[in-house]
Design a binder for these strands. Structure first.
Lengths: 346, 346
DNA sequence: AAAGATTACTAAATCGTTTTAGTAAAACGT
DNA sequence: ACGTTTTACTAAAACGATTTAGTAATCTTT
């Protein structure tokens, strides 16, 4: 049994420290939670307990603590797909900022899939996250309503539900799209196609609205045949094929394309490349949201970029504020987008 | 107080179900853990309890469960940087596979930073992960030794420590690099520069060794001045500057560059682009590890790709096996890389 | 029909904290 | 010097599950 006792080095608990210090568990708990002064524990005793805790390598049991207090110091993050440029970078900053404030993050991808969407949130709630940062899918609405109802700290990101009185952080999708179309039109493009996702998520709706308004403002006519909607969650190659077909059918019927997301843009570029269509010579391209390919590829793609870092920072800030002092009014934060001109618009 | 009771809809516990069913909490616990048959609970009672649990929307308390059993159904994932193409895609598959097996994942980025590296693991251990998938930094070695010592299920990924008897999943870095150099040499490149990270992580060492062996096998001489090591964790623009300087100094002294990671490749391409150096006309490029830019940019970059999906799958598989039936021998899994020829090598 | 085995349960302990409701002893006010 | 506060602590309950060690009641066996 010697091996046993060496290996299993019995976790030390508050009781062990209490015994070692010759005091009650209560005292130890108070000291270790930094409430010694407040609770009138003598300075000398506080010091003794702290020293002992250190020496005995005490680490509080997360379950016991959670069971009593309900706190986990963990926030749940739900995104569509962590491997996507936008969400990956968002997640990175969320984690950084959360870490600074003493929280860790547990993440799940919804894959924009109904079953998974609905499960995920329940799972996170079961694990008692202190708060939630969620890029919601439409399927999540009932669960989200419950979440808000139960006053659990939550901030939606990238999109939101107009009828749900929650915190959210987004960009100004409407004006971003409007400006994108303005830019295209200003450069002389007259037939502007739109490639977007087939979803009723609000950010996409707003981008579409911005596109429509952009056409109108520039005296261009809206042609339904120039709008292509790709269902969410299709594998990339399927998107490429579908887009190639669309571009082929509308050949010579458009001189520019506005993609409403970076992964649509990637698929679109791949389709153009496969078809031997050159950008910007044969078609101008502008894309909502940036990534490495757009920034460094040849030609560089002109984009309407989102302030990812700021979005993530704000989201964490708002969330942590709500966790730590509940009862604040919902924040609705809308950040501006910024056009980055590169070489894809002629 | 009506509002209160509506809002706070008191969580239902096992006791509530027990009361409703007119049995003891023990019985309920047994039934809900699917041990009814085994524990000789009558079929009718089991059914009654299950129905009630459903009706009352019972959800087990994660803390209480964890406190008793030590299980969390959560695995901890530590990567350098979740926003990196390789790690983002790895994380995605890890999450998918873990989900299939009933686990959620908590992720942290080490940022390749000493302080963070050492903290992270302790934090995850405090939160009682059932197992760990870790792309380790060298700083983590002491913590990792403790982890292995305490027989906590762990699998290292992307790299490992030769002296640490742990599970790991990597690719064949040595042969991958060797083949990359072979390819470059076969196409007639004679002066092959190496851009790598300044680290003693084993995967990088192996890639450097493969490069050296590749030179030797092809009768090329090793020139120290053609090797550039960039410290880990530098911001991208700093890398670009440093590389531009390096390329400028060695101008006309090399005809090809082998980058040992995808983010070095990205920085290198940006440097070339800034300097007006064209690929592959003025310099051939090959890169360890793929990404969207390499795949879709012009020119396409020839890469030595890693089977990311397979790596992640294997890692989860090995980990879950160890969690669920401990005491298995450590698995050392080395997957082959594959060259994807595109247009960057002349 | 008595002894033993099996069935169908249960009471109470336990996991490691935090918190509530104390209590002696010392200090203070007058 | 007596009552009141303040100081410096503590015992025990609670959080919500699981598990151990039972116990009546019924069924078998002989």
């Amino acid at each position: 049994m010697r091996g046993q006792s060496q290996l299993m080095a019995k976790k030390v608990s508050i009781k062990d420290i209490a015994a070692a210090a010759g005091v009650s568990a209560t005292t130890v708990s108070i000291v270790l939670n930094g409430r010694a002064r407040e609770m009138k524990i003598s300075e000398s005793m506080a010091l003794k307990v702290e020293k002992l805790a250190e020496k005995m390598k005490y680490r509080p049991n997360h379950f016991a603590k959670g069971l009593r207090t309900g706190k986990t110091n963990t926030i749940g993050l739900i995104v569509d797909d962590i491997s996507n440029y936008f969400f990956g970078h968002l997640a990175k900053v969320v984690e950084e900022e959360a870490d600074k404030k003493g929280y860790t993050v547990m993440f799940c991808s919804s894959e924009n899939n109904e079953g998974k969407s609905r499960n995920i949130l329940n799972m996170l709630v079961d694990k008692h996250m202190d708060g939630y940062i969620i890029a919601p899918t439409t399927f999540m609405l009932p669960e989200l309503e419950k979440l808000i109802d139960e006053k659990r700290p939550t901030v939606l990101i990238d999109r939101y539900f107009p009828d749900l009185n929650s915190n959210y952080v987004t960009v100004d999708n409407f004006n971003g799209s409007l400006e994108a179309v303005n830019h295209l039109a200003y450069k002389g493009n007259r037939k502007i196609a739109l490639v977007t996702n087939d979803t009723d998520q609000i950010q996409m709706q707003q981008r579409i609205d911005g596109y429509m308004e952009g056409l109108k403002k520039n005296g261009l006519v809206f042609e339904k045949s120039l709008v292509k909607k790709i269902p969410f969650g299709w594998p990339e190659q399927k998107q490429v094929k579908e887009l190639a077909q669309f571009f082929n059918k509308q050949k010579a019927n458009f001189d520019a394309v506005f993609f409403t997301s970076n992964n649509l843009g990637v698929a679109g570029l791949e389709a153009f490349s496969n078809m031997g269509i050159t950008v910007p010579e044969q078609v101008s391209v502008i894309c909502f949201d940036d990534n490495d390919l757009f920034r460094l590829g040849k030609p560089g793609i002109t984009v309407m970029s989102q302030p990812i870092k700021q979005m993530a920072k704000k989201a964490v800030e708002v969330l942590v504020r709500q966790i730590e002092q509940s009862g604040t009014e919902p924040s609705h934060i809308v950040l501006p987008t910024q056009i980055i001109e590169r070489e894809s618009v002629r």
